[in-house]
């Protein structure tokens, strides 16, 4: 299995470049943790790597059909039960077994409950459990630990560790130390420097 490689990536938010010159590789079994102040462009970078928006420059290789993306929103339907939510995502991604995902996030007792009746932290656990049922090797997380308690953060770290041990990869934007041994990538140095505008250029950038 090959890794994910990002080379010289520049990303746009609202038509303005926010980050540029980002290069790193993610080999099987590795994790990269993205750091940087609010508004630096972590979400934008993750969305670009996920293929949801086109990069301004540079390439992302190895991501096509291999990533699973956990955004701020969990994509959970409040009227469906926990099991139904997970089963749906499992079958969209090719029919994995949902039992390990339920076990990893201790959702057994909640399995039949409608997702609308879950607390914020329980919803988050369900959203994260969704990553396990995708069967995708590269996991992208955007602030995964929001509204999780300390215990649940531990379960999450365990799930990621298991995934890495099985040859998976993870890219996390988080400020919490999860105890994962991954390289930390500080995005602050990559903040896009806008060159001086004297030419009336084509792109209006």
């Amino acid at each position: 299995m090959t890794g994910l490689s990002i080379s010289d990536l520049a990303v746009l938010r609202g038509g303005v470049p926010v980050l540029e010159g980002i290069s790193f590789t993610l080999e099987p079994g590795q994790a990269v943790i993205l750091r940087g102040p609010n508004g630096i462009g972590k979400t934008t970078l993750l969305r670009t790597i996920a293929g949801l928006q086109p990069p301004l420059a540079g390439t992302v290789s190895g991501a096509e059909d291999r990533i699973a993306y956990a955004a701020h929103a969990d994509g959970i339907k409040p009227t469906l039960s926990v099991t139904e939510n997970l089963t749906f995502w499992a079958s969209v991604f090719g029919g994995q077994d949902i039992a390990p995902a339920i076990a990893a996030f201790r959702l057994e007792a909640l399995a039949q409950r409608p997702a609308g009746a879950l607390s914020a932290g329980q919803k988050r656990r369900l959203g994260l459990a969704r990553m396990l049922v995708t069967g995708r090797p590269i996991w992208l997380f955007d602030e995964p630990t929001v509204s999780l308690d300390r215990e649940a953060v531990g379960w999450f770290a365990d799930a990621v560790r298991t995934h890495l041990a099985g040859g998976g990869m993870a890219l996390l934007a988080t400020h919490i130390d999860l105890g994962l041994d991954g390289q930390v990538l500080d995005l602050a140095p990559f903040k896009a420097v806008l060159d001086h505008l004297d030419d009336f250029d084509e792109a209006f950038l």
């Binding site: 996920a50 293929g51 949801l52 990533i67 955004a71 929103a73 994509g75 995502w89 969209v92 090719g94």
Partner: peptide, 16 residues
């Protein structure tokens, strides 16, 4: 509805 709860983002990265 799928847009608001983020399901569309996830569907867009799905094999479908």
């Amino acid at each position: 509805l799928d847009w608001e709860d983020g399901s569309l983002d996830l569907l867009a990265t799905a094999p479908l």
